[in-house]
Design a protein around this nucleic acid. Structure first.
Lengths: 327, 327
DNA sequence: CTGTTAGCGCGTTCAT
DNA sequence: ATGAACGCGCTAACAG
């Protein structure tokens, strides 16, 4: 048994002859290791540090990520894959760094990170002493040495938004695109994807909205839109701020068609009350579940992870949002 | 150890006192069994018979189910969960019965079934001698004694179709609903959901299409629609026949907006070429993966399955179909 | 009713 | 360079 083990794990100290004999038998019998037994003998468990914003931020968006973590625990907990949360305050970039440092020095075996503030994440990651397996979700960060990014193709998501809104409003000059600030990488990508849908020269007007300024800024944005365009029949908002925009618009007699991104508590409320038509969702729970699955395969099976693992671009309406909480 | 084991598995032969003491310690220490070790000692494997139509039928729809099976093998194969396919010819109801009987008598530990011909499935199931754990997907069959149904809420899916098409065509009198025959339970439900969206008296006209009759019948259907309605701006088709309908329509100068159900080879082709606007998909690969996951939890962890496990209602456009092949 | 024991497949010593 | 022996956590059979 020792010899076979040494062959399987390339530990040397085996004569070429025996080495080949073992390899041949491995092939012929299609031997695959019993992963459970392997784990049993090494009595190894893996803990993943889950680093993403506090679950009360972004309108409850991150609660869904928590749910994914729980789901993953059900699936893989019995095989020794655990997780530990290191949440941070996403309004403070220094707090992201703190969370990453704490996670890295806590003795975990891997980090699952939503780098919502790319620069801060990158800096904190680059200063880490120990190299830990890293999987990203939600926001891509190509510069980081991650095993894999699990998430949505934001460009295509924005483009689907344009296609959807054009379905309802064929004339692009009657469409407004609201680009929300502060913008991170994938929100920018969404806007790019959105505008890419339209022929050059006929793209809808783009309006910046600084969401930190609250409802007043929405009012002024809508005035601004009203002034610069003759008539607006459709509005696209590049993130969950669509909920707040819809809220304001819903008080008017006649509202334009309105779509946006991300299923959060506020945007969901507007979807349910009928003041938003469709939301483009990205299913953070599924992303986290998938990421944990990949971690498991990486540790237990030595599986080479894909660089990117994209998740579906979900278009959600009043009748279908509930089913996203099921899986 | 024996006593603890007897408590954990409710095998009796333990005094109430010790029983409670063990339970208490289980709670206090948050004991969870090491599933790998459990499987190692029993050296048990479970084989699931996967019973669904041949992968060349329904425009390749079932190929996706195969892919889900493969994905599940990657995830759970190492834990002893295997599958074996028993495909059937869905045009012959007797063949469904044959497949079920073969599956049931093949010594498998469970059956994963797409009961696309409900009556035939029900009859074959009722005549089975041995009771095997059964999980259904794709088509619900409430009368069967299944552990769980994994699939889409067809009513809501149809209703989302109506909402989507109304988004593009606000006037219901300019919408046509094509109800495809032969219709099974969930295709009927889709049409119900579709019409439920509209106020009584203003629902779009419903036209029957017998898809077995080929393109000629589509031509005559479209003539029929053209005769009975002044102008049609949007068409909804209740299944993947939307591909064929779109094909015919695409040869015309100006086509109405068109949406339908299910991502098959033919409907996908029309989506890609731009002759279909959106498809409502149901992700059979994810359904199968989820079903296998539930089987695993049932066998390994004694988990009580939910009666229904709904999957998302996917609205897919030109830019987003590809991402459904990723997960 | 309770405790003991063997063995599942593997990785890891430790002798040889 | 090779093989024997132990233990990981658990189940099943058996002795008491």
């Amino acid at each position: 048994m020792g010899t076979v083990d040494r062959v399987l794990h390339n530990r040397g100290r085996v004569s070429t002859e025996t080495w080949e004999r073992v390899q041949r038998i491995v092939r012929e019998t299609r031997y695959t290791p019993n992963l459970g037994a392997r784990r049993l003998s090494t009595s190894k468990t893996w803990t993943i540090a889950a680093v993403f914003p506090r679950s009360d931020q972004d309108g409850g968006f991150w609660k869904e990520a928590d749910r994914g973590l729980q789901r993953a625990a059900e699936d893989f907990g019995g095989f020794g894959l655990r997780s530990r949360s290191f949440s941070f305050d996403r309004t403070k970039s220094s707090d992201l760094g703190r969370a990453i440092r704490e996670a890295a020095s806590s003795g975990v075996d891997g980090i699952l990170l939503a780098p919502v503030i790319p620069e801060a994440a990158l800096e904190a990651l680059s200063k880490l002493k120990n190299e830990l397996p890293l999987v990203l979700f939600d926001t891509p960060l190509p510069e980081a040495q991650a095993l894999c990014f699990v998430g949505q193709d934001a460009f295509s998501a924005g483009r689907i938004g344009a296609r959807l809104l054009s379905f309802g409003v064929p004339d692009p000059s009657r469409i407004a695109c609201v680009a929300v600030k502060p913008s991170d990488y994938h929100i920018g990508q969404r806007v790019e994807g959105f505008t890419s849908f339209f022929a050059a020269g006929s793209a809808p007007g783009i309006f910046q909205l600084d969401i930190d300024l609250g409802d007043r800024s929405i009012e002024s944005l809508l005035r601004q839109i009203g002034n610069s365009l003759p008539a607006i029949d459709g509005i696209y908002v590049s993130n969950a701020a669509v909920g707040a925009v819809a809220q304001v618009l819903s008080q008017r007699r006649k509202r334009p068609l309105i779509i946006g991104h991300d299923l959060t508590a506020s945007s969901l409320e507007s979807l349910q009350s009928g003041s938003i038509d469709f939301l483009i969702a990205q299913h953070p729970a599924l992303q986290v579940r998938e990421a944990m699955r990949l971690f498991w395969r990486h540790f237990a099976d030595d599986f080479e992870l894909p660089k990117e693992q994209y998740v579906p671009i979900d278009v959600v309406g009043h009748e279908s949002w509930a089913y996203y909480r099921e899986i």
